[in-house]
Design a protein around this nucleic acid. Structure first.
Lengths: 117, 117
DNA sequence: TAAAGCGTGTACTATATACTACACACTATG
DNA sequence: CATAGTGTGTAGTATATAGTACACGCTTTA
């Protein structure tokens, strides 16, 4: 359980082993931020960036945006929108599922996608 | 579908019909904000207040905090925490359930609470 | 050995968020 | 008819958020 910063750095260095285009500077440029900023993010000298920046970073580094956002304590705006449309329903559901084991939740997911609803 | 502000005002005036302690000033005081601020919130002259303030307001006005937060486009911090602990799982679930009708989601809720998991 | 590229330290900055403080006019109450 | 209470207009503020800009020393490359 290390933080968002180290997680990003590790992944970047991972990718770098197979492709030299993953220097801090180059990634920063593709993501559209200053290299110094990415440096600080990776070393957690500054708090996590915005949702948008995190998403671009996730895409660039081939990471799951939802995971990256979660490590920053954030929830993607599209999920927020889903909840906000039926707040009582989904609030109840989530609190209900808080301590439900993964496999049981996944069973629900599969049942729903098998779509006899 | 009127906004958060009018919704709050309406509820406050509703409560006021049976209890004079629901003037804008008195509610504001109990909630811990300035009356001018509450006034602006109700008339949507200012953007919605913080999560904490909305929750205290909900309690004071006997409204569902999740609903109030939702109308402000926010999601309660405890729900965020639940999602952030298993982001992939719950992101998938929520996107899956986005267009699932209420009754079907409620069926899940009941199945889970009947707890044979 | 010069130039390009690397990561980082320091110092700012712009915008959004979340309010407060004071003054005013109107209404109801004692 | 004074005074207590009501809602609101105007102006300002503190803090958080989300970054930028420049300079530096080190390393690799040509």
């Amino acid at each position: 359980m290390n933080g968002l910063g180290p997680y990003i750095r590790q992944q970047r260095e991972q990718l770098r082993q197979h492709d030299n285009g993953y220097s801090l500077r180059q990634v920063a440029e593709r993501v559209g931020i200053q290299p110094t900023y990415l440096s600080k993010i990776e070393r957690e000298e500054l708090p996590p960036p915005s949702e948008d920046t995190l998403k671009r970073l996730a895409q660039e580094l081939k990471l799951d945006p939802d995971v990256l956002l979660a490590m920053a304590g954030k929830v993607s705006s599209d999920l927020r929108a889903i909840i906000c449309q039926r707040p009582q329903l989904f609030s109840q559901l989530l609190r209900q599922l808080k301590d439900t084991p993964d496999h049981a939740v996944l069973r629900i997911v599969r049942e729903v996608s098998d779509g006899d609803w």
